[in-house]
Amino acid sequence: MNNKRPLAIPPDPARRQATLGLLLACSLLIFAQSVLANTPTIRLFPTTVVEDLKQTGNVARDMETGLQEVIGRLDQQQQLYVESKCDGAENDPGCQRLARQIGATYLEMLTIMEERLPDMEHTVNNTRISLERGLRNELGKKMTPWQLQETLVGKTAASAPAQASPTLRGRSGMRLSERFRQYYQLVATSGSQSDQSLAVLASDIYLDMEETSVLIERTRQEIARATLMEQLNQSFGIITPEMMEVVGGVKTILFGDEDARALVAGPPPGSVEQAYRSPLEQ
């Protein structure tokens, strides 16, 4: 018979300290996690916005592809018209034939746009409405101006040097599909961005969607009118200056205008010395 009592583990001060340390570390970790979880984050980009941007980019790309060939042809016909010295010789039968060809290509362009624009309008409006709701609720109703400012400045306003952030304004020199592709990429990776850049990004895209939406609506109205006018002109073989303007406008919107590309000057490099924080600072 073995009457020996099971061996009690003698109290080990080192082990006890280690256990206590582990417990303390765990509770600190849990506390830190709960603090992080409670940190307010603004929800400006629901998944629908990301999908809408992707969709708009695809629709824009399809429209560009469809129009590129027609616009190229239109350019060649215009060049031929000028080289044939048809300006001022509108009654010449050859020039009239050329003018009719140009008119027909112009109508083709309008038809393609008419077909593609409703899809574009739909996706742009969806994006705009989603962003509008987010901006109104998150920045408009939930925040005071001071809170908005703190969101924009971030937590490191006084100590961190100004970072070079990409600026989105001045997009006119960019293809429409490229613009949306960039938006999509920025928004799709928005999880890694801070609230401050999200607010600026959402505002920028929203304002652009507003402008685009108005532009599409106007363009659709104009297309209906221009189509009717050109159908009438076809019988006479006339090239109107308005026609050339519309073609120029479409090219600028779709393929960008290199001259209009806005350059944003960055600030000169600042000094590194930044140590003092006043107790009066807010």
Partner: peptide, 15 residues
Amino acid sequence: EVELVLEATCTACAA
């Protein structure tokens, strides 16, 4: 940034 964000936010509020 405030100018841009306020323009967008106020347009959204007005909408």
